[in-house]
Amino acid sequence: MTEPSTEPPCQDGSIPAMGPPPLRQSLTLECRIDDLVRIPRWFEEACSFPGLPSDLLFDLMVCAYEAAANIILYGYDNPKGHAITLEFARSDDVLVLSIEDDGRPFNPLERPEPPAVSTIADAPISGRGILLIRRLSDGLEYSRAAQYNRLVIRRNLVPRCEPCRKVQE
């Protein structure tokens, strides 16, 4: 096992003690909105492990939920019969979530960052899903191969300080 990073991204960050061996889990969802309820259950039951801060798992769960909801809502003319595959892996210092679908090509990294808003009137109604994925992850990778979208979301096993988690005003 490699040593955890000794350079947390925030001055007040600390590195949680990691004991269990690497973990790998997968979940296949039907492309239906009502199947999304399986995501939080899967994270709680299959992806948790002793020593894992619940906030980090929650962040990754939010990312998984938002990504899968986008695929179901926008990835197909008719999502019936299609599937979304989620894979969760943990190494010593990072949680990695991979999401694959055979919907139309869509690279969320190419979506422009929504403008900062200061009033209810100015705030656009939609577009928060990708924003949440960006804010709650430490790394995103997208690829398209063999008619499959693959989004890889990384979450470091190092707490970030609160100002880093908030939208910069």
Partner: peptide, 15 residues
Amino acid sequence: HVQEVFDVSGFSSIF
């Protein structure tokens, strides 16, 4: 957890 989603989405500052 709800507060966190509000914070990262910027909703905490407009509601």
